[in-house]
Structures are given as C-alpha cells and as structure tokens.
Amino acid sequence: MAKIGVFIETDKDEVKKTNFGAITAALDGGKNEVVALLMGVDANSAQETLAAYGAQKIVQVTVDSADLTASPDLQARALADAIQHFALEGLIGLASARGRDVFARLSAFLNVTLASDCVGINFEDKTVRKSHFSGKTIATIKLNSDLLLCALRPNAIEAQKALADSQVESYAASVDAPGLVKVLEVKKGDTAKMDLTEADVIITGGRPIDAAENYKMLEECAELLGAAVGASRAAVDAGFAPHSMQVGQTGKTVSPRLYIGCGLSGSVQHFAGMKTSKVIVAINTDKDAPIFQKCDYGIIGDMFEVVPVLTEILREQTGQ
C-alpha cells in the first residue's frame, strides 16, 4: 500500500468537486492510503466531504508567518516539505490553471518528473496516460522519479464514494526561502458563471451566435442543464465572448459528461479541447458540417430555433 497525497483545490473556501475524482484515482481501488492536503481553508470544514471519497488523513498545510496564498512559489515549497513530512510516495492533483502551475513549480523545485493533464494513472508501473498532439493521440508515459507527480484532467476520472475513517491534522511546513513571485490582486470573475473546466455539462456557441447578447439564450438553457457556457475561437475572435469562455486549442480543455455544441463546424483545434467529453451533441444548420462526422448525436437545424425548444422541454421536465 502506497501513501499518496492529493492536493485539494478550493474555491471560496469550498472544496471543488473535481477533487473527488482525483481522490478516487489516488485511492486506486483501495490499494493506496490517501492524504488530502489543503491550503488556506479550514480542514475541519472539508473533512466530511473528503472522507466520503476515501481520504483517510486531511491535513491543513500552513507556513508560519507567511500567507501561503500570497505566492505560488511558497505553496510549491510548502507542498514539497509536506510530501517529505508525511512520507508520501506520490502527489496527485488537478490540471486546472492553478494545479498546472503549482505542480510544475513543485516538480521543477524537487527535480522530479511530472505529467500534467493526465487521463489515467497506473501506480504499479508508474505510468500515466495523457493527450499528445492536441488530443489526436494518447501517450503512455513512464515517470522515472521515486516520487510520482501527476496532475489529472478535471472530470477525466469519475469520482466514486468510498467512505473512510478520517483524521484531521494541521501541519506547519518549513519553507526556507521567500517566494520569487508575489500575488498582488485576485479579481474574481462573474460569480454566477460556472468554471468551464469544472462543469459536468457544457453548452457552447460558435460563430453563428452572431452577437454577445445572444449568449443569453444559451445561459437560460445552461441554467436548467446545470451547465457552463462556452464559446468557439471564432466567436471569441469576433468579440462575442471573452477568452475565458473559449474551448479548444488556445482556450480551455474540458471533459464534461455532456457537451452540446451549437453552430460549431468541428475543427481539429476545437476538438482538441473537448474530445474527451463523454457524450457530444451538435446542433448546426449545415448537414455537411464536419462536426456531424465525429460526434454522438446531431440535430440539423438553427440553434435559434432548437435551443429555445430544448430550454422549454427541460423547463417542463423540471417543473420550473
């Protein structure tokens, strides 16, 4: 049995639910012992949620006389110290914007191999599976360091409940150098909007959406679906949506269980960002659009006619 750490990401003091899949991965069907590492939030408040997925130890990592959230370098160094203190054989996390950053800093600091954006881990032979060439191939990579560092694509591994007896602990890490990078300000985005990489369901509008205000139509539908709203590169470049909404190459990589693309042609670059979605639905007026050749279900029709009907049907079903 290996002792594996999971770096838990939080948002507004809440544990992000995409962490649960990382715990499931770390647990490896009960073969490993999981230590959850949290920063900047109260471990007690997270105990119940994390233990429900199998975390046996829940540790709040702090640093004396420094605010860990004020420097990503400090976070990486504190994690390095915690890994040693708890004798962890691996650390798993999420390949979110924050996770990618912290894991890269940590691996560079420790001179340990790292694979980011993985869709699978094999603890026995220390291999991971991850995308190469914009999702066109999957690579199996062996990580040759003693410590296994791996950041998983959010939602790539399905979370499974596995209630564990858990203990909460606090650990004051010792960090010998100040961070070289300082956080000056964090400006929260629109809080009503769900983070794309976290979303279970995504509905995306392409270039034919034709105006920024038309995304309202998708937002209404998204609310009933519990979905986040995305945009294609063409729609972003046309100024209809901010870059933070862009899915695909030069945008976000997502892996929801349901992806609904409205007015998308289905470019390789777009698919690079959403190919690992479980089910892909396309709505497009052009029956010859390439997207219909590589998705699961299609409606040949105008999104401005189809989406309002979808919203209406969902509303009838949910009785809202």
Binding site: P72, V181, V183, K187, K188, G189, D190, K193, S244
Partner: peptide, 8 residues
C-alpha cells in the same frame, strides 16, 4: 479559471 484574474 472561472474568469478570475490574478495579478502577480
């Protein structure tokens, strides 16, 4: 993520 911007 989620449109949140950090200044460093």
């Amino acid at each position: 993520g989620g449109g949140t911007r950090e200044t460093l």
